[in-house]
């Protein structure tokens, strides 16, 4: 097991290297540069081509792309992700602040979607083709079909504005002292908006996986042994149905980062998604690369975690070397 984990961790490095090469090349080849993004059009009349060239040179943008990449990589290996051109702050600091905002929402969304998705999926599978199953199926399809940002707008209108239960957005309430209660109140709506789509797909996967398992012979055997229905379903049925669900869960984090771009915009929530969008808009290469690197690490780790979870769900799966 430990060998497997070590091997997987070692595999992360070439994967990361590939991801950074691809991303760096795409970013560097895209039109525009930070200098042109920085200048206010109102100030254009004061700029000369020499001014622009000087600014590019100062930012090291005149060097060939492979040289710039190798310089970046050399520094990144030493733990220096560089300075964000736009934020005028170390990339690590910018990303840490963004992650500090995004992680509570993502953890909340993963908890909500996992608990709700699996629970509702079990209920749906136990009452197949019933009225309740139809309602849950409708809910699941709506979750997949309705764009997250639209659901987010509905939540803002209904829960924040009409019912006045939660804030419309932001990380904290301006003017209030920092408190858990206030911070938590600000993650509920974006958390639910992020969780909605995941909940629907998890519900459907749990339902179909469990339905398949419920008809197998060992379920009949378990019941024949006299086990109570709860134990039959949870220990024999659900556990065997978990493998595809774990795969879906492992893919949750990457999709959360993707979804966060829109959700964070709608809720004015300055997290990873919003920061990376801004980095792309402003051609802030160091921030883009740092952001990609950090999110890639998190995604690879979540995949590793999913692999480990397989062994928990199914003891037949061993990662020992033959």
């Amino acid at each position: 097991m430990s060998t497997y984990v070590l091997r997987r961790i070692l595999l992360v490095f070439p994967l990361l290297l590939g991801a950074t090469i691809i991303n760096y090349t795409i970013f560097a080849l895209s039109p525009g540069d930070p200098v042109s993004a920085m200048i206010d059009p109102f100030e254009l009349s004061a700029m000369t081509e020499e001014d622009l060239q000087e600014a590019r040179e100062a930012l090291g943008l005149n060097r060939p792309i492979p040289v710039r990449y190798l310089l970046w990589l050399g520094e990144a290996i030493r733990g220096n992700l560089g300075y964000s051109i736009w934020f005028n702050t170390p990339v690590f600091e910018v990303m840490l602040r963004a992650l500090g905002n995004s992680m509570p929402v993502m953890i909340f969304a993963i908890l909500v979607s996992t608990i709700a998705g699996i629970t509702l999926g079990i209920i749906s599978a136990l009452k197949p083709y019933s009225f309740l199953d139809s309602i849950l199926t409708t809910f699941a399809f709506a979750g997949v079909a309705v764009p997250g940002f639209f659901f987010a707008l509905l939540l803002i209108y209904a829960v924040a504005i009409r019912l006045d239960l939660l804030p419309t957005g932001g990380v904290t309430t301006p003017g209030l002292d920092p408190s858990f209660k206030d911070r938590f109140a600000h993650i509920i709506l974006p958390g639910f908006a992020l969780a909605y789509e995941s909940t629907g797909s998890l519900l459907r996967y749990t339902r179909s996986s469990l339905l398949e398992v419920l008809s197998l012979d060992y379920m009949t055997t378990a019941r024949a042994k006299g086990l109570v229905e709860r134990v039959v379903i949870l220990r024999h049925g659900l556990r065997n149905a978990l493998l595809p669900i774990i795969t879906i869960l492992g893919l949750r984090l990457p999709s959360m980062f993707g979804g966060a771009v829109l959700i964070e915009t709608v809720f004015n929530y300055p997290g990873v998604g919003l920061t990376l969008v801004q980095a792309v808009n402003m051609r802030d290469y160091p921030l883009m690369m740092g952001g990609v690197l950090i999110t890639a690490i998190l995604v690879l780790l979540s995949n590793l975690l999913a692999d480990l979870l397989y062994t928990v769900a199914d003891p037949r799966i061993r990662y020992e070397e033959s």
Binding site: P31, G32, S36, A37, P41, L44, L52
Partner: peptide, 8 residues
Amino acid sequence: AEYTNILN
């Protein structure tokens, strides 16, 4: 994105 470059 090439706005400024083109203008100048």
